[in-house]
């Protein structure tokens, strides 16, 4: 069953340019050079219940704009959107009670009060019965390890602790669908991992559907099974992560460790040398010849350890953007 259905979705914004200098500012007082930007162009996709989908793209690609249209914050210029059987732009309360949106740079907790007080406001806004509210709060705060921080002013918490509290606020009403817009931005790697582990657990236990934007590929690899890649407002890829890597020519990385010195000139005979620090090297080869190259390497070099991996997601994405001719 589809939780999100998007067909031919587009969004155009009006803006104006202001050339450099004071004279241009005066000129702008009565004459503005209005332009239009198509932030999202004819995007179509479906997401099924329980799927965890990454929404990737460079800055300004249209990820957040699409997410805002899916959550009813923005009205689409054209196209059809159905989320949980509702049209988001109708902004019905029944719809709003079934999803949650968490934006890494926007906060709903009151900084001067302990998070528990902001949670009480969430309870009243979402009309959560008290026993259910208590049960959810206990569970979420225990899993995230913040039970002992509930009575401390939010502004006195660390960024990671604050984000965990924001997550609790977003989940207290038991949403079926979660929009996460860069949820780990600014967090240290331990906090990032804690948040990701928590989300993994939540998906497993609550059959939550998640649409996640992030520039952190570790987040994506850890959590998502499917990737939507958007570039210049257009959807350029929609498939599982493995297929993203395969669709770009199926490359593999061979990591070699040797007690003897590894020479790049020698290694380059087997494939593209990605890195070489004398005793450890990384080669990129085509998937079809990876085993063959490995056997040859084992014959030619005194190998201490060797393993084959898929290229990092960042590299696959970079190649995807290059193929689209849109890398700076």
């Amino acid at each position: 069953m589809n939780v999100i259905e998007v067909e031919g979705l587009s969004k155009t914004f009006k803006f104006y340019r202001k050339p450099q200098g004071l004279s241009a500012s005066f000129k702008n007082l009565w004459q503005r050079q209005v332009e239009f930007k198509e932030a999202v162009k004819n995007v179509s996709f479906n997401i099924e219940r329980g799927q965890v989908v990454a929404f990737l793209g460079t800055n300004g690609a249209g990820k957040t704009t699409t997410m805002k249209m899916l959550s009813g914050i923005l009205h689409p210029t054209t196209g059809k959107v159905r989320v949980l059987g509702h049209t988001p732009s109708d902004r019905e309360d029944q719809f709003k009670k079934r999803f949650s949106i968490l934006m890494g740079q926007k906060h709903q907790l009151w900084p001067d009060l302990p998070a528990i007080d902001s949670f009480a406001l969430c309870q009243r806004i979402y009309e959560i019965p008290t026993p259910l509210f208590r049960q959810r709060l206990t569970r979420l705060s225990e899993v995230l390890g913040v039970s002992h921080l509930l009575d401390i002013q939010v502004r006195r918490l660390s960024l990671g602790e604050r984000m965990k509290m924001e997550l609790i606020a977003a989940l207290l009403h038991g949403p079926e669908l979660l929009f996460l817009d860069e949820p780990t931005i600014g967090l240290d790697f331990l906090s990032q991992r804690a948040v990701m582990r928590f989300l993994q657990q939540l998906v497993k236990e609550d059959n939550l559907t998640i649409l996640l934007t992030s520039h952190n590929m570790a987040d994506i690899s850890a959590l998502c099974e499917r990737v939507l890649v958007i570039q210049n407002g257009q959807l350029i890829f929609d498939d599982c992560i493995a297929n993203l890597q395969d669709s770009l020519g199926g490359l593999r990385r061979i990591h070699i460790e040797s007690e003897s010195a590894l020479r790049s000139e020698l290694l380059s005979r087997y494939g593209k040398v990605i890195s070489n620090d004398i005793h450890r090297a990384e080669l990129e080869v085509n998937d079809g010849v990876a085993n063959e190259v490995l056997q040859q390497l084992l014959k030619d070099i005194m190998v201490k350890d060797v393993r084959i991996t898929a290229p990092p997601l960042e590299d696959s994405l970079e190649r995807l953007y290059q193929r689209q001719g849109q890398v700076a």
């Binding site: 914050i73 309360d93 709003k96 949650s100 949106i101 934006m103 926007k106």
Partner: peptide, 14 residues
């Protein structure tokens, strides 16, 4: 600053 975004997603009169 876009704080109004979050208000619009709450099941209460914005």
């Amino acid at each position: 600053e876009g704080e109004f975004d979050l208000i619009l997603t709450k099941p209460v009169s914005a």
